[in-house]
Amino acid sequence: MALPPIVLIALFIGFPILLALGFSLGFTGGLNHTISVIGQNVHEAQGASPTFGAYGDLFVDRRFLGDLGVTVIVTLVSTTAVVVLATGIGLYLKFRGGVLGKILSGLAVVPLFIPVVIASWAILGFYSADGFLRSVFALAGLEFPVWSFSMVTVIIGSVWTSLPFATLLVTSGLQAVPQAMIDAARDAGASFWRVVTSVVVPMAGVPIIIATTFTAIGILGSFTVPYFTGPNSPNMLGVDMSNYFSAFNQPQQAVVMAFVVFIIASGIAAVYVWANFRSAKESGAV
């Protein structure tokens, strides 16, 4: 019963990734033949020993290294902002609730309703040269910077699109912390911040880590937001992959980028798996 999705994934995700790994190392035979004939600047392996030519191309390329740095920075900044916002909203809902709490959590979920293409387009307009913020400041006689087509809008867009998912995960994790434990800590004289940092957040640690890893992986490989709202260069690797594949016709280099992103994402994924195992251990499942 569990087989069909696994077969589908093995066939259309696992297998192509293995093929691509071979292609990135210069094995251009078999199913990789067509793409290596179409593509330019393809490095071919000598017999069975792989070549790291395509990797070498990129790692001496200043533009690639710059974009790699930009990708990591955008991921770090956006993920931090998302997790802080989501935790803040979740804590407010847990400790105060009320109408404002509902409004806050409702607001944070709104982006889930909006396709990413539209969100990117809307955000670009809002922060553009004739956008809302600049209009408001101009009416007050002030000059506001143009944020469209800069990394600022990419970060804003990433936070905007990632917020609902993280908020849902973190909020439900925080709600699951038993009120009795909070009351006990309060009765023992713990301040609000002490309760938050020593009781609530550690107890909701696993959902928070899961939300963090999902957000980070999503932003790391994102394409639509940086493509629409970001500058031509430097930009994130998702956009570079697409450019190298279609515009520059260098599929091998595009695939190498995918693996670079994948390696970083795997590091993050390992944290996710570890967090899940920890939670399973705590609940006695392992």
Binding site: I17, F23, I35, G221, G238, M241, P251, A254, F262, A265
Partner: peptide, 16 residues
């Protein structure tokens, strides 16, 4: 499978 960047996956899928 979800952690592999989507754009990279589509590029890889193209060959297949």
């Amino acid at each position: 499978a979800n952690a592999f960047p989507k754009m990279g996956l589509f590029v890889s899928l193209a060959a297949l």
